[in-house]
Amino acid sequence: MPYFTLKDGVTLFYKDWGNATGQPVFFSHGWPLNSDNFELQMNFLGNHGYRVIAHDRRGHGRSDQPWNGNDVDTWASDISELFEHLKLTDATLVGHSTGGGDLTRFAAKSKAHSGYGSHGSKSSWVKKLVLISAIVPQLLQADWNPSGVPLETMNQQRALMLKDRSQFFYDVPEGPFFGFNRPNATVSKGLIQSWYNEGMQASFKSAFDTIASWETDFRHDLQSLDIPVLVIHGDADQIVPFGVGNQTTKFLKDGRLKVYKGGPHALPNIEVDGINNDLLSFLKET
């Protein structure tokens, strides 16, 4: 698999699968995971002729583990450099959870840039955006965002990481992330172990610092977008409350909401066929 070194010396791991000349789809993963968490969507779209790309965010997975730069603006800049390196154009972005935040910031900033079309012609970097269980418009609770997560809860998560990250990183997938704590839930030990393995690959510093990104207000970023945006959220999400995602479209010029009844936070893992087909249908729209 390829690696790319950023201007600040940090090396990112990324996957570039599928049809090398196909329409590009770029994925950004949630916390504290890596690009492996989108493998079923990448395999599905790759088999449908798309070029599918995903990176391990700095500090996560197989990428370098720098002390600094674990913030939304740096992540968006990292994606910009990777887009330049791969000469991507007219890409559809797909972000889950925290990945929906960095892709929203990247899409907003990319309006000032251009990519490389065929024969060297200039073209836009971003064509469409998909936000799945994303932390936009803001995960942190506020007067305008009463459904958000209180700061006290985020501080509790920081404390649990400092006390025993290993145990915390079992408690999250065993409970709210996949919705396995709900009555009559079908529990997958494999998904729990996979989440734990990916989470423990991330550096402690990067995983800890990422919690601060959940306080980011993305309303201005969303309002600046003039591309089609598909917002997908489960109404039983215990990580990013449905009341947060449900209001995203009101900040968009061209947004629509797809609700998964009873859907947990981990829709790409739990609702694989539904998410795959949602993505394919959105990609096929002109």
Score class of each variant (00 low, 15 high):
Leu129Lys: 06
Asp143Met: 04
Val130Asp: 01
Gly190Thr: 14
Ser121Tyr: 13
Met200His: 11
Ala159Met: 07
Val126Lys: 04
Lys189Val: 02
Gly100Trp: 05
Phe178Leu: 05
Leu162Gln: 15
Tyr116Ile: 15
Ile192Glu: 07
Lys109Asn: 15
Lys128Trp: 09
Pro150Ala: 10
Gln141Lys: 07
Glu152Ala: 15
Ser121Glu: 14
Ser123Gln: 14
Leu129Met: 11
Gly175His: 02
Lys122Cys: 04
Leu162Asp: 15
Ile192Asp: 10
His119Asp: 14
Val187Leu: 05
Gln156Met: 12
Phe106Met: 08
Phe168Asn: 13
Pro146Gly: 11
Ser147Leu: 01
Asn197Trp: 01
Ser121Met: 11
Ser123Leu: 08
Gln201Glu: 14
Ala112Cys: 01
Thr186Gln: 15
His113Asp: 13
Lys127Gln: 10
Gly190Glu: 14
Ala108Trp: 01
Met200Lys: 04
Tyr170Asn: 09
Val130Trp: 04
Pro146Ala: 11
Pro173Ser: 09
Lys128Asp: 07
Ser114Asn: 10
Lys122Gln: 12
Ser147Met: 03
Asn184Cys: 05
Leu103Pro: 03
Ile135Ala: 13
Gly115Ala: 09
Tyr170Ile: 13
Gln193His: 13
Gly175Lys: 00
Leu160Asp: 14
Gly199Asp: 05
Ser121Gly: 03
Val172Asp: 02
Ala108Asn: 04
Pro176Arg: 05
Glu198Phe: 11
Gly199Ile: 01
Pro137Asn: 11
Leu191Arg: 06
Lys111Ala: 14
Gly99Ile: 06
Leu139Glu: 07
Asn184His: 13
Gly101Lys: 05
Asp143Val: 06
Pro146Glu: 08
Ile135Met: 08
Leu160Gln: 15
Asp171Cys: 04
Phe169Cys: 01
Gly175Cys: 10
Pro176Phe: 03
Ser147Trp: 00
Arg158Asp: 10
Thr104Trp: 03
Lys128Val: 04
Gln201Tyr: 02
Leu129Ile: 05
Gly115His: 07
Val187His: 02
Tyr196Lys: 12
Phe106Ser: 09
Val149Asn: 04
Pro146His: 05
Asp171Pro: 01
Leu160His: 11
Phe180Leu: 08
Pro146Phe: 00
Gln156Thr: 14
Met161Lys: 11
Ala134Ser: 10
Gly148Ala: 13
Leu151Pro: 01
Leu160Pro: 00
